[in-house]
Design a protein around this nucleic acid. Structure first.
Length: 771
DNA sequence: TGAAATCACTTTTTT
DNA sequence: AGTGATTTCA
């Protein structure tokens, strides 16, 4: 195979007139690399696979490699394509690159698969059957659309859960399969046929709506490349070098996408770690990394095994654990950093506790103790298997007044009020966005009930026009009651007035105008429920977020792809997040709670995926451990409340798999006596010695119970500025989580408050506001 | 048409 | 337990 870019340095320099090696001093960024890293950076021609273990400098290699390509004048920045998996990784890489090579970093094609696909798709929308300005549906829209289609087809949502169907559709998309290519064996079995049928209709409906979902961004791009070789060729020529981060997490569609783009020059560099593959449930194929060498014969394979992040104890624990996986390329981490040299680096602490609340108490105690040892909360993370495990920690951290932030929790864009507000903006930007129309036509209440909307739907469907246009016509006809007609006409007039304003004023101002004039903001301001003020705040935050953008379209595009408000402000406290969210991050101190059978490894994972899933769960544990630089703590509870009842829990098998020489196991000695050998069995036995405690209804607060049911989902994190000095006994206060209440007593910065909903609770003064 | 009442389902992980 | 959806009642 001839490779147009297989040039020697001399050829290249002669061709471009760039100075030769001796004239160019070695760029500073190469100096600090170890030999393997250096090889990964300097092997520019042909396919390269970098097997990069945790903490071995993967991001550094990627950014340095880009810098090197540019410095060597191998390519212009806009001819380099770098693909990441998350927006965060893209942002981080861009920042680090800018730090090395300056503002020219901006012109590199760097982004997530989805963002880059969208960029390509916008240019060739017509080839995918879309019109300019097509919109991107969020998960909620997708599901609503599917439910409509199911209702039209007379399918029972009880028999075929829309979420399950959606899952199947997405997995087909992950595999690059359009509805007509769904293989026969995928159509057999319960519900499969109906899912395939719905997939066809769903795609058809999306085209009618001039919309696509997340998976379509890739699928359409891929389809265009396959159906129009001249377009594919254009992009093959356009990029001289392609780099891919987290290659182990790519799905089939992404694999094909990359293979197509790299087909010409094969200057493809993929960086990944099979031991950190944790997204198979989303269609990721570890197979992609395992067969790289076969796909790209003659590829260079470079292993990065020197870990600069963690202590030997942490690495030993992680390696010992992951060794239990059969299906891996086999790669060992060698401690090489400053942390490894620390002679009194302590072992990984493993601790068994009575229940989830005791676990939270212990974790926060340790956090407070560590902060006195020079390891402050700001460098500490609590990493959990599933979001519901966060509750106990949030509660405990709040009670103790330790600042914290939840990362990747319920996301900004997913909030009801934000989705509503976005629907207004979408409808104004895209009058044929029917899903947006439906969402807000009667929010706030305009007296347009189901009956009116039903006839509107029917009419629009018959005339083949978008709902907004149909509404305009319907308001002029005499189909509806006078009141409904008037309301509809008013709504249509509003939207048209706002549409006229687009471009005439900054989008943030437009957004504020719409929220005011529609009465949507007023609706929440008038709402008396405890969460309403937070929603008003979020709406204000939304307007603030729009300020960053020049046009409404640019904002909507950003929100569709990024869907998270940029983490603003310094991370001051303990970081609380899921293990999945933690990949690619590092902390001085890491707590890994909830290591119990059925929780971690998760029961559902085992039920659905068997051995393969068990290994994936183990990789997740490995990811968790390897996030830690200096200290790692593993814990498990003998009893845990799941849903609303208590369940006895066995320690996770992963606890036993941790090598003894790297960990120190202790249990609650004060309560249960010293336990050394047979530790896990004994802990597991607790549950049987103390059979399921059934707690009768959490609230009521009585019965000596400090144990009060946790409140609702999310609340805003507040820093502890001002110690609530203006709060006095008898004062009515508002608490983000517990709502309104009255102060009973105050002692040492803590208040006893009688909450209207949650009963009597002790809270830190800084977490309540006087009302 | 809107509010109240009941019901079912939740909690694995997310671009 | 708490949320959201669906059903029932005023």
């Amino acid at each position: 195979m001839t490779d147009p870019f297989d040039l020697t340095d001399e050829d290249f320099d002669a061709a471009t007139g760039a100075p030769g090696d001796e004239a160019t001093p070695e760029p500073p960024w190469l100096a600090g690399l170890n030999p393997e890293q250096r090889r990964a950076v300097e092997t520019l021609d042909g396919p390269v696979l970098v097997l990069s273990g945790a903490g071995t400098g993967k991001t550094r290699v990627l950014t340095t490699r880009i810098a090197h390509i540019l410095h060597q004048r191998r390519a212009q920045p806009w001819r380099v394509l770098a693909v990441t998996f998350t927006n965060r990784a893209a942002r981080e890489m861009r920042e680090r690159l800018a730090g090395m090579i300056g503002p020219v970093a901006e012109s590199v094609w760097l982004g997530t698969f989805h963002a880059l696909s969208l960029r390509i798709l916008r240019r060739h929308a017509a080839l995918a059957g879309l019109r300019d300005g097509f919109s991107i549906l969020d998960a909620d829209d997708q599901l609503r659309l599917l439910k409509q289609l199911m209702a039209d087809a007379g399918l029972d949502a009880k028999k075929d859960p829309p979420k399950a169907i959606m899952g199947r559709i997405q997995r087909w998309k992950d595999r690059g399969l359009t509805p007509d290519r769904v293989p026969e064996e995928d159509r057999r079995g319960t519900g499969a046929q109906r899912a395939a049928m719905l997939y066809t209709r769903y795609q058809a409906r999306l085209l009618e709506l001039n919309a696509c979902d997340f998976g379509d961004l890739l699928l359409h791009t891929l389809g265009i490349f396959q159906a129009h070789p001249e377009v594919a060729a254009e992009y093959q020529r356009r990029f001289d070098y392609i780099l891919v981060d987290e290659y182990q997490d790519t799905n089939v569609a992404q694999y094909l996408w990359l293979r197509l783009l790299a087909a010409g020059h094969r200057n493809l560099c993929c960086v990944g770690d099979d031991d950190q593959s944790i997204y198979s449930w989303r269609g990721a194929e570890v197979g992609n990394i395992l067969r790289f060498e076969q796909d790209y014969p003659g590829s260079a394979v470079i292993r990065l095994e020197r870990n600069y992040r963690s202590t030997t104890a942490i690495l030993g624990a992680a390696s010992g654990l992951i060794r239990h996986n059969a299906d891996r390329l086999g790669k060992d981490l060698i401690a090489a950093g400053a942390a490894a040299a620390d002679p009194d680096a302590p072992p990984v602490k493993v601790r068994g506790l009575w229940d989830g609340e005791a676990e939270a108490r212990w974790v926060v105690e340790e956090i407070e103790a560590l902060s006195h040892e020079g390891l402050p909360a700001a460098g500490t993370a609590i990493l959990v298997r599933a979001a519901f495990l966060m509750r106990a920690f949030e509660e405990r951290l709040m009670t103790c007044g330790v600042p914290y932030q939840v990362v990747g929790g319920p996301r900004f864009y997913e909030r009801l009020e934000i989705r509503d507000a976005l629907a207004y903006l979408r409808l104004v930007a895209q009058p044929d966005d029917d899903l947006a129309f439906e969402r807000i036509v009667n929010t706030p209440k305009r007296g347009l009930g189901e009956a009116s909307l039903q006839s509107l739907q029917v009419m629009a469907r018959k005339a083949g026009m978008p709902l907004l246009a149909a509404a305009r016509d319907l308001a002029d006809s005499d189909e509806l009651t006078k009141r409904a007609r008037k309301a509809l006409a008013g709504f249509v007039a509003d939207v048209e007035r706002w549409r006229a304003l687009v471009g005439g004023m900054p989008p943030a101002e437009l957004c504020a105008t719409i929220l005011e004039e529609s009465g949507y903001a007023a609706m929440w301001k008038a709402d008396k429920s405890p969460e309403a003020p937070g929603r008003v705040e979020n709406l204000e935050e939304l307007v603030g977020a729009v300020t960053e953008f020049e046009t409404l379209d640019a904002f909507l595009e950003h929100i569709a792809l990024v869907m998270e408000t940029e983490s603003k402000g310094a991370a001051a406290g303990v970081t609380l997040m899921t293990l999945h969210g933690a990949k690619g991050l590092e902390f001085d101190v890491v707590f890994l709670p909830g290591w119990e059978e059925d929780v971690f490894p998760h029961k559902r994972a085992l039920e659905e995926g068997g051995q393969a899933s068990l290994e994936e769960e183990r990789r997740l544990a490995y990811v968790g451990l390897t996030r830690a630089r200096k200290r790692a703590f593993v814990s498990f509870a003998a009893n845990r409340r799941i849903f609303n009842n208590w369940q006895a829990a066995m320690p996770s098998r992963f606890v036993d798999e941790l090598p003894d020489d790297c960990v120190e196991k202790t249990s609650d000695t004060g309560l249960y006596g010293a336990v050394t050998a047979g530790f896990a069995e004994e802990m597991g036995g607790w549950g049987t010695r103390h059979p399921r405690r059934s707690m009768t209804g959490g609230q009521g607060g009585a019965g000596g119970g400090a144990r009060v049911a946790p409140g609702t989902g999310s609340w805003k994190v507040r820093d502890r500025t001002g110690d609530g000095l203006d709060i006095t006994v008898g004062q009515r206060v508002f608490h983000q989580k517990f709502g309104y209440g009255r102060v009973l007593s105050s002692e040492g910065g803590k208040l006893a408050v009688d909450f209207e909903k949650a009963g009597v609770k002790t809270v830190v003064a800084g977490f309540v506001e006087a009302v």
